[in-house]
Structure formats: structure tokens, C-alpha cells
């Protein structure tokens, strides 16, 4: 079963993906690692940011790893690199 989620790209990830948000179709039951890999497969340049971003699902931090996610249609996935300007 797959479902459509909304991926939001912030800061450097928006620049590298060249898009600020998009709907993608992903497996409803997936690990956070698989979700990240799915996003990177669409935007290979994001690979450079692995270990340097927050991944948030439904506005909640998710460690990229084997954590199992149960996604619902319309869920918000956010890619949040830290920004350091001031």
C-alpha cells in the first residue's frame, strides 16, 4: 500500500532539490531510512546532506534509521538542515 505525502524542503535542501515542496508517493509502511532514500533517489544532490539534516514527519523529529513509520495520506515530511546565519 502506498500513499501520497507532502515533502517540504527547507534551507540548503530546497536549494539542492530545486523545489520547496512536492507530493510524492511512498509505501505506507516504511522505515525512516527507506523514506530518506526515496527522497534522495528523486534528488541525488541531497545525499550530501545525510547526517546533517533533521527529518520530521508530522512535525516530529525522526532519526534516519530502521525506525518503522506508518504514513497516512497527506502527512507532512520535512527536511530541515540547520542554518547558521545571524
Amino acid at each position: 500500500m502506498s500513499c501520497e505525502v507532502l515533502v517540504l524542503y527547507f534551507a540548503k535542501s530546497a536549494e539542492l532539490a530545486d523545489v520547496r515542496s512536492e507530493h510524492i508517493s511512498v509505501a505506507q509502511r516504511t522505515t525512516s531510512e527507506q523514506l530518506w532514500e526515496e527522497i534522495v533517489s528523486r534528488h541525488p544532490r541531497l545525499a550530501a546532506l545525510r547526517n546533517h539534516v533533521l527529518l520530521a514527519v508530522r512535525q516530529e523529529y525522526i532519526a534516519i534509521g530502521d525506525q518503522l513509520l506508518l504514513l497516512q495520506p497527506g502527512d507532512e515530511v520535512a527536511i530541515i538542515p540547520p542554518i547558521s546565519g545571524g
Binding site: 540548503k12 536549494e15 547526517n51 533533521l54 546565519g85
Partner: peptide, 20 residues
């Protein structure tokens, strides 16, 4: 805890480059 490893320097944008 959130960012154990700093981002590669070339992926960091500053205000003079990126604007604000």
C-alpha cells in the same frame, strides 16, 4: 544531539553569499 556532525563546509551558505 541533533547535529552530531557539522555539515561539509561547501554546503553552508552565509548571509553575504545567500542574502537575508
Amino acid at each position: 544531539c541533533l547535529f552530531p556532525v557539522p555539515p561539509p563546509a561547501e554546503t553552508v551558505t552565509n548571509c553575504s553569499d545567500g542574502g537575508v
